[in-house]
Design a protein around this nucleic acid. Structure first.
Length: 607
RNA sequence: GGGGGUGUAGCUCAGACCGGUUUAGAGCGCCAGCCUGUCACGCUGGAGGCCGCGGGUUCAAGUCCCGUCACCCUCGCCA
C-alpha cells in the first residue's frame, strides 16, 4: 500500500476533456500565489505544470493552513477535481492552461529549503552554482529537455542501426594502456599491486578485434575517457557512436552514417538533412578554409595572393615565398568601413595567437583610394589583378598573412571564423552543413618527438601510389582516413583499417615503434591479424557535440547530466578526492600525498 | 604549463580606472502583514555582506600592489 496519495495523472496531462475527473497530482511546488482568500499552486513535474486552486469555501481550516505553509520546491500530493477555467482565465502559454484542479485535500510529502536559485528557465545562474546543485538545475526544463533529446536521439540511432543489422556490443572499461594517443586514466589493481588498468580513450582495439571475431557489423554508444585539458566542447568523459564494419570501405562507412544520422535527426528533431554529404579533400579544405573542419555556412574563402604580391617590394612576402611559405588572405566585402584600424590591430593580435608574425592589410575606400600597410606596394596593375583574381573591389578590405604553410592556413582559417562571427556572416537559420574531409596525410613529422606521428591513429590503412612509398616518402602518403565535420565542428573521425600483420608492422616501424616494443604492447593484436582478419573500416562520432550543434548550444556540458568543470572536477561530489592511506597501501601505491591547502568540500546545502 | 575574463547579499549584477561620499547599493529571491481569479499576482514593511582568500602600500583599501584559490573562454594538448 502506498504510504502517500499516489498520482493518477502527471502535471502535464490534464486537458479540457478531463473536466470533472477526480485526480491526484504529485510534484514540486513551482510557485504559490496566495491572494488572501483563494490560493493558487502551480505544481511541476517532468511533464509540465498544472494550476491547483485552494478555495477557503471548499476546504477546512486545517487544509487551508497546510496550503499556506507551502513554499517553492516542497513536494506535495494534491487530490481534487478537474474543472475548466472561465474563458477569461485560460492560460494559453501552457498545455494544461484550460483547466485547474480544485483541491479537496493536500499532503506535504517533503519540505525544501529555499533553493540557491529559482527553478526557472529564464533565471541566469553561473555554471559554478548550477554544477554544485545539479539536481536542482535538472528540474529546469532547459537542461531536462536537452537530456530528453539526448535520450530520444540515442534511441533513434539504435533503431536505425538495428534496422541495418548492426549489433551493439559493450567493450571493457578496464583495459590495458595504449602507448599512442591521448592520456588515459589509470586504475591500480589491488589483486596485482603495482600493475594498472587504463580506462579506454576509445574502444578502438576492441572493435577491430570484434571484426576479426566475425561480428561483421558492430556499433556501441560508448563512453570514452581522456585525461586531457578541457574545453567547451570537451569533457573527460564523453560518448561516441562507435561503429565498425567488415568487408567494406570508406563508401560503406559514409553511407551507413549518412543514413543513420538522417533518420535519427528526422525522428528526433523533425529536420531533413540532405544526403549524401559533401566531400572535400583535406588539402582543399586547408586551401579554401585554412582548417580541416571548415564551417561551410558562409563564404569568405581564403585567397591565394602569391601571384598578386610577389615582387611588389614588400620584403616579407618575397622572403616567405622563397622559404616555401604561403601568402594568402581574406577579402572582406565592405570591410573598409566596417573594420576600423583599431579593430584590425585586434585581429593582428588574434592571428598572432596562432603564430602569425603579422597581418598586412589593404583598404579601398568607396572612391577607390587605397590605404593600409600594403597600400604603397600595390600599383595599378597589381590592383587590377587583385580585383580580377580575388574580387577585391572598392569598399573592401584585404587581410593578408605571409607565413609558414601551417601557420598561414591556421591563422587565416581561425580569422575567417572570427570575422564571420563579428560581421554576422553566419546564417541565423538552423542550417546543417555536413562535410566529409578525406585524404588526410598519413603522418606528420613531430619536431618535439623527432619522429613521424600518425595523423589519425596507427591502425589506419594508407594508400600508396607505388610499393614502398611509405618507407621512401612517408610525408606524402595519404591515409584512408576521414573526418565528419558539421558547421565548423569535428564530429568524429574514422578510417579503413590495416588488416594484415605485415602492413601493421610497416606502420609501427614508420612511427618508430621497435619490433620488440610492438610485440610487447600490441602482440595480442598483431597475432590476431594472423588468424584471418577481414578487411574492415569504421568511425566514431562524438554524440554530445552532435547534439550540441543540433540544439544550438555553445558547449556540451548541458548534454551531460553531471558534467565536470574546466579543471575536471565534479562540483557536486567533490571528485577527485583524497583516499585513505590504507586504500593506497592495499593498492601498493606510494602514500606521500602532495602538500595542499584545504580542499573545497562538496555542497552541503548552504545556509 | 601559458594567455585572457570573472569573483561584492541566497541568485544576477552596479560601485573599482581617479583610495576618504554616505552607514557598500539595485533587481529577483527570502521573512512578516494585508489581499477571494491569480498565473513572474499585487501592496506595505523587514532581515540579509569575511566585497573569494592571504599578505603588502597608506593616516585610510571593496577600490592600489604582490601572491593564491575557484569558475569561464582559450593556446599548448586532445592518435
Amino acid at each position: 500500500m502506498a504510504s502517500f496519495p499516489k498520482r493518477t495523472v502527471t502535471c502535464g496531462g490534464l486537458r479540457g476533456e478531463d473536466e470533472r475527473r477526480d485526480v491526484v497530482l504529485n510534484g514540486w511546488v513551482d510557485v504559490v500565489r496566495d491572494l488572501g482568500g483563494l490560493l493558487f499552486i502551480d505544481l511541476r513535474d517532468r511533464y509540465g505544470v498544472t494550476q491547483a486552486v485552494v478555495d477557503p469555501d471548499v476546504v477546512d481550516a486545517e487544509r487551508l493552513a497546510r496550503a499556506r505553509e507551502l513554499r517553492p520546491e516542497y513536494v506535495v500530493a494534491l487530490a481534487g477535481t478537474v474543472r475548466r477555467r472561465p474563458a477569461e482565465n485560460v492560460n494559453r502559454e501552457r498545455a494544461t492552461g484550460a483547466v485547474e484542479v480544485l483541491v479537496r485535500d493536500l499532503e506535504i510529502l517533503n519540505r525544501s529549503k529555499t533553493p540557491p536559485f529559482e527553478i526557472r528557465d529564464d533565471a541566469q545562474v553561473s555554471d559554478e552554482v548550477r554544477l554544485r546543485y545539479r539536481y536542482l538545475d535538472l528540474r529546469r526544463s532547459s537542461l531536462r529537455g536537452a537530456l530528453e533529446k539526448r535520450n530520444a536521439f540515442f534511441l533513434a540511432l539504435r533503431r536505425a542501426l538495428e534496422r541495418e543489422g548492426y549489433i551493439e556490443v559493450e567493450t571493457p572499461l578496464l583495459t590495458r594502456m595504449t602507448p599512442e594517443g591521448s592520456r588515459e586514466y589509470v586504475v591500480p589493481s589491488r589483486v596485482h599491486p603495482g600493475r594498472y588498468y587504463a580506462l579506454p580513450q576509445s574502444p578502438q582495439v576492441f572493435k577491430q578485434l570484434l571484426m576479426i571475431g566475425g561480428l561483421d557489423r558492430y556499433f556501441q554508444i560508448a563512453r570514452c575517457l581522456r585525461d586531457e585539458d578541457l574545453r567547451a566542447d570537451r569533457q573527460p568523459e564523453f560518448t561516441q557512436l562507435d561503429l565498425e564494419l567488415s568487408f567494406g570501405d570508406e563508401e560503406d562507412v559514409f553511407s551507413i552514417i549518412e543514413s543513420v544520422l538522417r533518420d535519427a535527426i528526422r525522428d528526433t528533431f523533425q529536420r531533413e538533412v540532405a544526403v549524401p554529404f559533401r566531400r572535400m579533400a583535406y588539402q582543399e579544405a586547408m586551401d579554401r578554409y585554412g582548417l580541416d573542419k571548415p564551417d561551410l555556412r558562409f563564404g569568405l574563402e581564403i585567397r591565394e595572393l602569391a601571384g598578386c604580391l610577389r615582387g611588389s617590394g614588400f620584403r616579407v612576402v618575397d622572403e616567405v615565398l622563397a622559404a616555401g611559405g604561403l601568402v594568402r588572405g581574406l577579402v572582406v566585402e565592405g570591410g573598409a568601413e566596417r573594420l576600423s584600424r583599431k579593430e584590425i590591430d585586434g585581429l593582428t593580435e588574434f592571428v598572432a595567437g596562432f603564430g602569425a608574425k603579422g597581418l598586412a592589410f589593404l583598404k579601398a575606400d568607396a572612391a577607390g583610394a587605397l590605404s593600409g600597410s600594403l597600400a604603397r606596394f600595390v600599383d595599378g596593375e597589381r590592383r587590377a589583378r587583385l580585383r580580377a583574381e580575388c574580387g577585391f573591389r572598392d569598399g573592401d578590405l584585404l587581410l593578408v598573412v605571409a607565413d609558414r604553410p601551417a601557420v598561414a592556413c591556421r591563422s587565416l582559417g581561425e580569422l575567417r571564423n572570427e570575422l564571420a562571427r563579428r560581421l554576422g556572416l553566419v546564417p541565423r537559420d538552423e542550417r546543417l552543413e555536413f562535410t566529409w574531409i578525406t585524404e588526410f596525410p598519413m603522418c606528420e613529422w613531430s619536431d618535439e618527438e623527432q619522429r613521424f606521428v600518425a595523423t589519425h591513429h596507427p591502425f589506419t590503412m594508407f594508400s600508396e601510389e607505388e610499393p614502398g612509398q611509405l618507407e621512401r616518402g612517408p610525408g606524402k602518403v595519404r591515409a584512408r582516413a576521414y573526418d565528419l565535420v558539421l558547421n565548423g565542428w569535428e564530429l568524429g573521425s574514422g578510417s579503413v583499417r590495416i588488416h594484415t600483420r605485415e602492413e601493421q608492422q610497416r606502420v609501427f616501424q614508420l612511427l618508430g615503434i621497435a619490433p620488440d616494443e610492438a610485440r610487447e604492447k600490441f602482440g595480442f593484436f598483431l597475432e590476431a591479424f594472423e588468424y584471418g582478419a577481414p578487411p574492415h573500416a569504421g568511425i566514431a562520432l562524438g554524440l554530445e557535440r552532435t547534439l550540441a550543434l543540433l540544439l544550438g548550444r555553445g558547449n556540451i556540458r548541458d548534454l551531460v547530466a553531471f558534467p565536470k568543470t574546466a579543471s575536471a572536477k565534479c562540483l557536486l561530489t567533490g571528485a577527485p578526492t583524497d583516499v585513505p592511506e590504507q586504500v593506497l597501501r592495499d593498492l601498493g601505491l606510494p602514500c606521500a600525498a602532495p602538500q595542499r591547502g584545504a580542499e573545497d568540500c562538496p555542497a552541503r546545502g548552504g545556509g
